[in-house]
Simulated scan of single mutants.
Amino acid sequence: MTGQATLPRGFRAAGHTCGIKVSGKSDLALFVADGPSSAAGVFTTNRVCGAPVVVSRRRVPSGSARAVIINSGNSNAATGDPGIADAERMAAELASAIGCRPEDVLVCSTGVIGVPLPMPLLLSGIPQAAGKLASDAQSLLDAATAMMTTDTVPKLTSLDLTLSGGGVRIAGVCKGAAMIAPNMATMLGVVMTDALLTPAQCTE
């Protein structure tokens, strides 16, 4: 779903081109909360998974996160311990750019399997992408577009709700064409809200 999807209060996004994709299309998406936020995650149950899944699955139980970084064009899967180190370096680079702990950054990658990440391109591109972070609708669309692989259109939406405590907004982006089964497969999604939720409520 496209259109004027907008970010919740306190969130920023950006899309950037690092040069990972041969096509030259954008390949790096950032989603950043301005302060500590409750976090939860749902991950593939497949026994074999990419390095970013390993790293992010370790971090989600803390119940807090500041950012999600996603690259497309390379899945950083079947890359062994060096792949895990690369995923951690991606998180650390973004953490340095936005001023948080590396452990507060979750990592996702999608694309070609079994090929090491082109880290020089990413380490150069992450600070540039962080410099583009903004809260407008175009920035959210740019980030959703940068996540795409075989998708034909970016997938994003937002919804405004009025609750007893006031108005809140929920926004979501995802990538994946027929990629949900089996066991979450290779679908990636990020859901953000300015509603005050506990980590446990985020999983409901």
Rank of each mutant, 00 (worst) to 15 (best):
A29L: 09
Q4P: 04
D104S: 10
G50E: 07
P154I: 03
V54P: 09
A181D: 13
A178V: 06
T2K: 11
P120Q: 00
A40I: 14
C49L: 07
L30F: 06
V190Q: 07
V115M: 09
M119R: 10
T186Q: 02
E93N: 07
V55E: 13
A200W: 00
A87K: 08
L123E: 13
F31I: 15
T152K: 15
A137P: 12
L121D: 01
L161A: 11
S64T: 15
S72C: 08
A29K: 06
I20T: 03
A91I: 00
V168N: 09
G19P: 08
L156R: 14
G19F: 02
D136K: 07
C174F: 07
D27E: 09
S37Q: 13
T79L: 06
L161S: 05
A29C: 06
P36R: 15
T198V: 01
A33G: 15
S135V: 08
P118Q: 05
S26E: 05
A67T: 08
P182T: 03
L122V: 12
E103A: 14
R66S: 08
G166N: 07
R101L: 13
L117G: 02
T157D: 10
K155C: 00
I113G: 08
I20F: 03
I126M: 11
R101H: 13
G15V: 11
T152C: 11
P118D: 01
A65P: 13
V105C: 08
